[in-house]
Simulated assay, not measured.
Amino acid sequence: MKKKWLSPLALIFALLLFLAACGGDDNGSSEGDGGDSSTDPDMLQLATGGTSGTYYPLGGEMAKIISDNTDVEANAISSNASAENVLSIENGDVDIAFVQTDVVAHAVEGINAFDEPVEHVMAMGSLYPETIQIVTTDGAGIESVEDLAGKTVSVGAPGSGTFINAEQILEVHGMTMDDIDAENLDFGESTGGIQDGNIDAAFITAGTPTGAVEGLAASVDVAIVPIAQEKIDELTEAYPYYAADVIEEGTYGLTEDVNTVAVLAALAVSDSLSEDLVYEMTKAIYENAEGMAHDKSSFIKAETALDGIDIEVHPGAQKYFDEAGVE
């Protein structure tokens, strides 16, 4: 009798242990707020920017680093940059993308170019300063932002980071888009238009030197319109994600330093990617940046990777920065 009583009891006990093991964690893994590693794609889409800007070549190098140092392949694709990239992540069209820190902050808040807040976009880390360059030529007669009034000026695609930068810079000078003849051109079209005489100037937000502007400088004498210090102070007070910046003498053949402002380029990722994968990607990029050929790679360092970040950091990236001692 004793033997018959113990056997069912042992079976019940074993069943309870099994059920407890299966339901021990509602999250199913230690992936944090990121996705489940079982759903990570085999091929990641990395959105960059136009082929004549800084994002595209740098993104190609990063895609190779990810492919060489993780278990997934990464493919860098061209795009219309920040605003489009944020929405592409939100809609599930890409997994990782270059963004401006100001634009992605607007996206999370649901302001400016964004009708409602995005919910699935997280930060991986910032990369380098993106300089706002107001490009023209020596003979255009444009020596200040106020001189842009009445001129034909490229301001980038509506809703893009460049477009918003142009709006805000005009704003602190008491101007709006109505005061200029605005054209919505990409970087290559902008510099081509300046060279052909079809436009007078262009706002270009990108790391310097920018390939499209270097190409223009090969055929004409390039000038960069300076921003006065009092306007820089006004802009940074109104919009704290800006910082003072300088385009150094010699860049594009300039004969003196030019004062301007910058935001930060950053990488954003989908919250569907697992903590493990984003940790591996973050570690791969920040620990292999010095091997990249692009000039901006010298700015890509773990110790500055949280500068300018005003949205939630993906737990995989945060895990790497915690290990690296980055606050």
Rank of each mutant, 00 (worst) to 15 (best):
M43T: 12
G197W: 15
K151D: 14
L11T: 03
S144E: 12
I111E: 14
L16M: 09
S298E: 14
S67G: 09
A182K: 15
M177K: 08
A284L: 04
A83N: 07
N80L: 11
V145T: 11
T70I: 06
D95W: 10
D138M: 06
T210I: 14
A182M: 11
A182I: 13
A83I: 06
A123F: 01
G28N: 11
A289D: 09
H314K: 01
H106Y: 15
L148K: 04
G92S: 02
F114E: 05
T54Y: 02
I247R: 00
I204V: 10
E275A: 14
D257H: 05
D181R: 02
A302H: 06
N27C: 09
G34A: 02
G150S: 07
M62N: 03
T210M: 11
A244V: 06
V269M: 09
G53I: 15
G50W: 02
E237N: 14
E234A: 15
I134L: 07
N288T: 13
A289V: 07
V72A: 01
Q45I: 13
L216Q: 10
D36P: 13
N85D: 07
A21N: 10
D36Y: 05
M124Q: 12
G250E: 02
T136M: 01
S270P: 05
A149P: 04
L11D: 00
E327A: 06
G207Q: 04
D40P: 10
T101V: 13
G141M: 12
A218D: 15
M175N: 11
D93M: 07
A212S: 12
N75G: 02
D307L: 10
A149V: 07
V278F: 03
I169K: 07
V172N: 12
S126L: 06
A243Y: 05
V278C: 09
L254Y: 08
K319V: 15
A123H: 01
V225R: 09
I199H: 07
N165Q: 09
L267W: 04
D233E: 14
N184G: 03
D257I: 05
N69W: 03
T136N: 01
E109H: 03
E146G: 05
W5K: 15
T70F: 00
D196V: 08
S78Q: 15
F13K: 00
A305C: 08
K2Y: 10
V99L: 12
G207T: 13
E275H: 12
E73Q: 12
V108Y: 01
D26F: 09
I309S: 10
V103E: 00
A63D: 15
D25A: 10
D271V: 08
T255I: 08
D71G: 08
A243D: 14
D178P: 11
E130H: 04
V135G: 00
V155A: 13
